[in-house]
Design a protein around this nucleic acid. Structure first.
Lengths: 201, 201
DNA sequence: GGTAGAGCGTAACAAATGTTACAACAACGA
DNA sequence: TCGTTGTTGTAACATTTGTTACGCTCTACC
């Protein structure tokens, strides 16, 4: 399908290689909005390509706690970092925000594609590396803690906090806690507030 | 050098390929115990292979806070997840615990090696994937929080806490805090203590 | 006009963790 | 033996965040 070519990873792939890839065992699957795409703990045996729609990856904690880890938007790979891991179960729960369509591509076929197409190899390595960097950043945010620091990071990355509740979920805190900290930072002049929400400086 | 063959990643590599690789620009470097190997923010332009000694990767926080992220022990790759990233600076500080020796291997040469040697490609993908899983786990520990849960995880991974101070640093909390929690868990029968330290069950 | 719901701010209290300080204990060398 | 050093337990207090609850302001809709 030409649908896959929207993915930067295989945009530079030759048509023959792509045709060969799709001749290997693979399938396309639909998910309705709100449906679970991946449960935490599910094995990850094929390359998953989100070609349509938006989804969310959440990490679930023991006591109902949950943290929004990543927002997925087509075209994008799903859980690429776990495809070739020794323990290849996904640690997050992925749910469809809008209606979604996803391709499952045979892992061994994709592995062979990487060997024949340097651009795919380079692209996949870059995706994996960026994922690693992303996760390091997230971990640093949580480990080095201090909600205020995380708020600053969030504002630098997102530009503004438009809905406090959503930001609170992403930051892994409760809404009243974030609301309180934002009020304090507003008093101290660390953030400003206009009709669009909270902003930096 | 035969030294590199200790690394599982290239153990199955043919001798010609390996000779070719070492003919490309690369160098071996020594680090004395206690010395800084990588500063946080340093760019990562070559594949780094720790072939001798032990090192530690720490994440530094704003207010002097620091978390021990990973213990590196030869033979092992250093910061493999950042070699092919768009923003390829390392987010951690790496210091030599014992005297260390490290190879720097040209990135493009290694990229070519992966294309000619499937075992190297597979191995590197696995290393990267495992790193991703490791980071996800770490992040989950911190995000989903509750020090007690992290202590249980730690005991499951390490077997025992022999020195409270070291464990506290790895868990990202202060020593008195960990000491207090351990005491409480001891009272509740969640852990036991013998002359070797704290244990599970 | 009225009503319901969503999103937000805020207050009072609880729980978790940090901070600082001190004492006990073991290991070790002078 | 004595003092030193490192490790640990513990206490008192401060700070941060969670919990729960309430009121306010919008907007959509009847």
């Amino acid at each position: 399908m030409e649908e896959l070519k929207k993915l930067k990873l295989i945009a530079n792939c030759s048509d023959e290689s792509l045709e060969w890839l799709l001749a290997q065992p693979c399938r396309r699957q639909q998910y309705a909005a709100g449906k679970l795409i991946l449960r935490a703990g599910d094995p990850c045996r094929s390359l998953m390509v989100l070609v349509e729609g938006e989804a969310e990856a959440k990490m679930m904690g023991e006591e109902g706690r949950e943290v929004l880890v990543d927002k997925l938007k087509a075209p994008m790979l799903l859980a690429p970092a776990f495809l070739f891991a020794a323990e290849n179960s996904v640690p997050v729960e992925v749910t469809a925000v809008t209606d979604c369509a996803m391709w499952h591509i045979n892992r061994e076929a994709f592995f062979r594609l990487m060997q024949t197409e340097p651009s795919v190899l380079k692209g996949f390595l870059e995706v994996l590396s960026n994922k690693g960097r992303f996760l390091s950043g997230k971990m640093r945010s949580f480990a080095v803690k201090g909600l205020r620091n995380r708020v600053v990071e969030y504002l630098e990355a997102h530009g503004a906090i438009t809905t406090v509740a959503a930001a609170a979920q992403e930051l892994g805190v409760t809404r009243p806690s974030l609301s309180r900290v934002l009020s304090e930072m507003l008093d101290e002049g660390l953030v400003v507030k206009d009709e669009k929400g909270y902003r930096k400086v």
